[in-house]
């Protein structure tokens, strides 16, 4: 495949779940009150005092086989440049099929426009020549890494080669491009 193939890696070992990514994204992308494009998901298992905790910073997985794109009746949800999944708010009719189709709960209806909205991998920043997403830029633990999977030298490629990782709900068959390091 030619051109970049963008992906994101989150290190769950260092992520403390502070939600800087969430607030940073809200400010960067001016999302409506009460809605956000990314969120913290934490899971604690076990019984006092033998407990285990996993913290994940979650957002749209920009799947290779994005179900939201295939169910969209108007073409508003589409595969954008770099293999990212984007929504064209001009075309969206708010039928919500994509919300139902997304196994990650990444999408919501922006009450201001009536169009579906979600993480864009900060596409506007990439277009402006920046190489980081807002969440990556702000993250105090630097647990979020964004980059090009097709570039073997990129940080994401390097991390995926050297560390154990998982994706969310692999059985859903969506081939997500958002990876979590163990």
């Amino acid at each position: 495949m030619k051109g970049p193939r963008y992906a994101m890696v989150v290190d769950t070992r260092t992520c403390v779940g502070c939600a800087a990514c969430v607030i940073g994204c809200k400010a960067e992308n001016d999302t409506p009150d009460g809605y956000s494009r990314d969120w913290i998901h934490s899971l604690v298992a076990g019984e006092f005092p033998r407990l285990r905790m996993t913290i994940e910073s979650r957002r749209c997985n920009h799947c290779e086989k994005a179900p939201c794109v295939s169910v969209c009746p108007t073409g508003a949800s589409h595969v954008g440049p770099g293999g990212t999944v984007q929504v064209d708010p001009e075309k969206c009719s708010g039928c919500k099929a994509c919300i139902a189709a997304c196994p990650y709960g990444a999408r919501y209806v922006d009450p201001r426009s009536g169009a579906v909205d979600k993480c864009t991998f900060c596409w506007h920043r990439l277009e402006a020549g920046k190489t980081t997403t807002s969440c990556q830029e702000i993250c105090p633990t630097q647990s979020i890494v964004f980059g090009d999977l097709n570039d073997p030298e990129s940080e994401v490629s390097r991390l995926l080669k050297t560390r154990k990782w998982y994706v969310l709900q692999p059985d859903a068959g969506t081939a997500p491009k958002h990876f979590y390091l163990e």
């Binding site: 295939s70 969209c72 009746p73 108007t74 073409g75 508003a76 075309k91 969206c92 009719s93 708010g94 039928c95 919500k96 209806v109 426009s113 009536g114 169009a115 579906v116």
Partner: peptide
């Protein structure tokens, strides 16, 4: 049920 009902005509602009 459409959140953006006045974009319903978009259904007939494409065939997905």
């Amino acid at each position: 049920d459409l959140e953006h009902p006045f974009n319903a005509w978009r259904f007939y602009m494409v065939f997905q």
